[in-house]
């Protein structure tokens, strides 16, 4: 039972981090209809800066710098590439982001080399005990931070002028632009916010119990893709639920993998993708995605 609770809390915590990544992914999709395959490299960029800067300027300043840098990189991608590509199909735009991803990830993994970079976070490897249940402090912080950020984002999305502009642009870009909403600014800010969220997620993907940031971190970040898509690419609620489902599945499958030895080693890494396939079979647009209706 204690194992179960530990796994569940860890799963929820890592799920909340996936939800952060997936949320950024969904924001970009809503604002620009681009499926951003460069998301993992944004995350890597943010995480890398934090890991490199904290010995110089301290953890909190480094975190801030990492978040800002990831937001800047994301905004730059939007401004330099996405805005300028005049292509008929959104699939092609998705492939462009793959090109960006190849460039960024190759350069960053080259910089990282074979190192495992510590994040310099103040929580270290301390654990908290509730009854018989032991949970790493980092997991709690991750859960709380992700919850706060997501709540703040959803409130902003609903009540601020920026949020209204974003929703209007997603609903009907042409009308929104006639109403005086600057579409360029909306989509650039969407990319920037997504980049910032990814940088925060990078921090929590690389702290205890993970050894640190290394070249495989971007592969870990790929698990947020199934999170986004099983919830529905155009649904913020979907990103949250998807993230939690993926996190808990992964944690449970890894935790109990000795009981499921027939499935092979490392089933925890594959399980998120299998869950995604099952859900897509039943609901092709994801759990909360709007089923596309077309009028001709």
């Amino acid at each position: 039972m204690t194992t179960f609770v530990e796994l569940l809390v860890n799963g929820l915590s890592i799920g909340a981090v996936y939800a952060l990544i997936a949320l950024g992914f969904v924001i970009i999709f809503k604002a620009t209809e681009v499926v951003n395959f460069a998301h993992a490299s944004l995350l890597l960029a943010g995480g890398y800066l934090v890991a490199r800067l904290w010995p110089l300027i301290g953890f909190w300043a480094a975190l801030l710098a990492g978040i800002l840098a990831a937001a800047l990189v994301a905004a730059a991608i939007e401004f330099l590439v996405i805005r300028r590509a005049n292509v008929a199909s959104h699939s092609v735009l998705a492939i462009v982001t793959i090109g960006v991803d190849i460039v960024l990830t190759t350069e960053l993994t080259r910089q990282i080399g074979t190192d495992v970079l510590a994040m310099g976070d103040p929580w270290g490897s301390q654990v908290m005990r509730f009854g018989g249940v032991t949970i790493a402090e980092t997991r709690i912080v991750a859960l709380v931070t992700a919850a706060l950020l997501i709540t703040a984002f959803l409130l902003a999305f609903k009540y601020t002028g920026w949020g209204v502009a974003m929703r209007a642009a997603a609903e009907d870009a042409e009308t929104a632009s006639l109403m005086g909403i600057r579409l360029g600014r909306v989509s650039m800010s969407a990319w920037a916010v997504a980049g910032a969220l990814a940088a925060v997620a990078a921090l929590f993907l690389c702290v205890f119990p993970t050894p640190g940031l290394d070249r495989s971190t971007s592969l870990v970040a790929l698990k947020a893709f199934p999170a986004a898509i099983l919830g529905g690419l155009d649904s913020t609620t979907g990103a949250l639920v998807g993230g939690l489902i993926i996190g808990v599945t992964e944690s449970m499958m890894s935790g109990y993998q000795n009981d499921m030895a027939f499935l092979g080693r490392g089933i925890g890494d594959v399980a998120p993708f299998l869950v995604m396939l099952v859900i897509l079979l039943i609901r092709p647009a994801g759990l909360f995605g709007t089923k596309e209706l077309a009028r001709v």
């Binding site: 499926v35 395959f37 199909s89 959104h90 699939s91 998705a94 790929l222 893709f225 199934p226 986004a228 898509i229 690419l233 993708f273 299998l274 995604m276 396939l277 897509l280 092709p284 647009a285």
Partner: peptide, 12 residues
């Protein structure tokens, strides 16, 4: 599935 949805599904 179509387009990018399929792209992510094929990661599986």
């Amino acid at each position: 599935l179509k387009g990018a949805y399929l792209g992510i599904a094929t990661f599986a």
